[in-house]
Simulated assay, not measured.
Amino acid sequence: MPTSCQHTVDCPPRTVWFDPKRCTDILLLLVLAPLLLPLGLGVAGVLALQGAPVLHAQWRVGRHGRMFRLWKFRTMHPGAEAALPVFLAENGRMAHLWRRHRKLPDDPRVTSLGRLLRRYSLDELPQLWNVLIGEMSLVGPRPVPWDELYAHYGTAMPGYLSCRPGLSGLWQVSGRNRLPYAQRVELDCYYVRNHSLGLDLVIILRTVGSVLCGTGC
């Protein structure tokens, strides 16, 4: 059973007139926009030239259980998600890795360009829009669908629901897909208990280092 975050969710949530974390998100977005906006437009242009859909949306659970569409640049072949159950049924080792990490090494559904985008986390650039409109934060627990939340978070679920999901977080800078899911939940719990502006800045700096080193997948 995952470690409890020892955190409760207000229902309905209290009105907060000044949110330092939200203000920090907006400020950093304004600072980074001159660099990240042209980069995102360039990636979108390359994908459009290939004739594939540029964006891909997935439903995720946000703060206080509100559902939102998580945006990514498309990195998989058309129909890839529908093919996943068949692929896992035919490959026991991959099925074990999927249950353990919810990720696949050398995922055959991913295109060659998609591998490059994932390696440098460029596929996640559209999530800056999610941050801008307040569905996500730059730092927080990584957003998950309801089935993963119920299957893996257990008593840690209230802690997850108390925060905006993050574009990056402790999981991404602490080993990422090399970590089992239970450890990912523990890192989310640690963040919920200890989050601060200082911790957020440390995670952002470590995220920049991970992206530049190409350690994503």
Rank of each mutant, 00 (worst) to 15 (best):
P2L: 03
C5N: 01
C5F: 05
H7L: 06
T8N: 04
T8C: 03
V9F: 05
D10T: 08
P12L: 10
R14C: 08
R14Y: 03
T15Y: 07
F18A: 14
P20V: 10
P20N: 15
R22F: 13
R22V: 13
T24C: 15
D25C: 11
I26P: 08
L28G: 07
L37W: 00
P38E: 03
L39T: 11
G40P: 08
G42H: 08
A44K: 15
A44P: 10
A44H: 06
G51T: 08
G51R: 11
A52P: 02
A52E: 11
P53T: 12
P53D: 09
L55D: 07
A57P: 03
W59T: 09
R60S: 00
R60Q: 01
V61F: 01
G62L: 04
R66F: 04
F68H: 04
F68G: 00
W71I: 03
F73V: 05
G79H: 14
E81D: 15
E81Y: 12
A82N: 09
A83T: 07
V86I: 04
V86H: 11
H96Q: 06
W98G: 01
R99A: 08
R99S: 07
K103A: 12
K103F: 03
D107L: 00
V110G: 02
T111Q: 11
S112D: 09
R115M: 06
R118P: 13
R119D: 08
R119H: 06
Y120D: 03
L122K: 08
D123M: 11
Q127V: 05
Q127F: 09
N130R: 10
N130S: 15
L132Q: 09
I133Y: 13
G134M: 12
E135G: 05
M136T: 01
S137R: 09
G140R: 12
R142Q: 03
V144I: 14
V144K: 09
V144H: 09
V144N: 01
P145I: 00
Y150H: 11
Y153S: 01
Y153F: 09
G154I: 00
G154F: 01
G154P: 01
T155K: 04
T155M: 02
A156G: 01
M157C: 03
M157D: 01
G159N: 03
P165L: 08
L167N: 08
G169Y: 09
W171N: 00
Q172C: 07
Q172W: 07
Q172E: 06
S174I: 05
N177H: 13
R178L: 10
L179V: 05
Y181L: 05
Y181S: 00
R184K: 11
R184V: 02
V185P: 00
E186S: 06
L187F: 07
Y190L: 13
Y191L: 10
R193M: 12
R193H: 10
H195C: 12
L197T: 15
L197E: 07
G198D: 05
D200K: 12
L201S: 05
I204S: 08
L205P: 05
G216M: 06
